[in-house]
């Protein structure tokens, strides 16, 4: 069984990463929720008998919130030219995944640790209940992190929420929810 688990590599094959926050415009009087979606996540997760380790790359300039001016503003705040990716490094205990990877279960909830790097700031998070579901030949993983802009070394961004004649400036609350719903397919291990 351990041989079966050795060096399985799963590659991101779809899904999305997203962030939620609340932006207040009109001198803070009008709150509205912003949800920006990114469907260009790439990365791999390697499963061995001793560790589950993965790295995901989320391109900063590919978040879409339905307002292109806002998306560009946010990407520039995150310095997308110098730091084109938000990098997520994840680590989990392989024992927790065994029931699913060996076919005994079709879904499970498991703890995971991630290191989130935004610009040049890295923060660690413990996610007590990430979810992994088997759907045919793919695995679908879901995880959510609740954090703050300031915890990631950022000021709550001022963005052009309304975008008319240079933009009426809105400010985000210092709350940030990050979520990932990603599909993984197993790929051949490189020699």
């Amino acid at each position: 069984m351990l041989l079966l688990l050795m060096a399985q590599v799963y590659q991101v094959a779809g899904g999305e990463a997203a962030y939620w926050t609340v932006v207040r415009s009109a001198a803070g009087l009008i709150p509205h929720e912003i949800r920006a979606v990114n469907r260009d996540v790439s990365g791999v997760v390697r499963v061995t008998d001793t560790a589950v380790v993965g790295t995901l790359h989320v391109p900063v300039a590919r978040f879409s919130s339905g307002n292109l001016q806002r998306d560009q503003d946010v990407a520039e705040i995150l310095e997308y030219r110098a730091h084109p990716y938000v990098v997520v490094t994840l680590r989990a205990d392989p024992e927790t995944l065994k029931p699913l990877l060996t076919g005994m279960e079709d879904s499970l909830s498991f703890p995971i640790r991630i290191a989130l790097t935004v610009r040049d700031c890295t923060r660690m998070f413990e996610i007590p209940a990430a979810v992994l579901v088997r759907r045919g030949d793919t695995l679908e993983g879901r995880a959510t992190v609740a954090t703050r802009f300031t915890q990631l070394g950022l000021s709550p961004p001022r963005v052009k929420g309304l975008g008319f004649l240079g933009g009426l400036v809105s400010r985000a609350d210092d709350t940030l929810h990050l979520t990932g719903t990603l599909r993984f397919v197993e790929k051949e291990e490189q020699p």
Binding site: D40, S42, P59, A61, Q72
Partner: peptide
């Protein structure tokens, strides 16, 4: 690159 961990080239900004 062999391990598949290197990021792909930065994609075109969505805007």
């Amino acid at each position: 690159l062999l391990q598949g961990l290197a990021p792909p080239p930065p994609p075109t900004p969505i805007w």
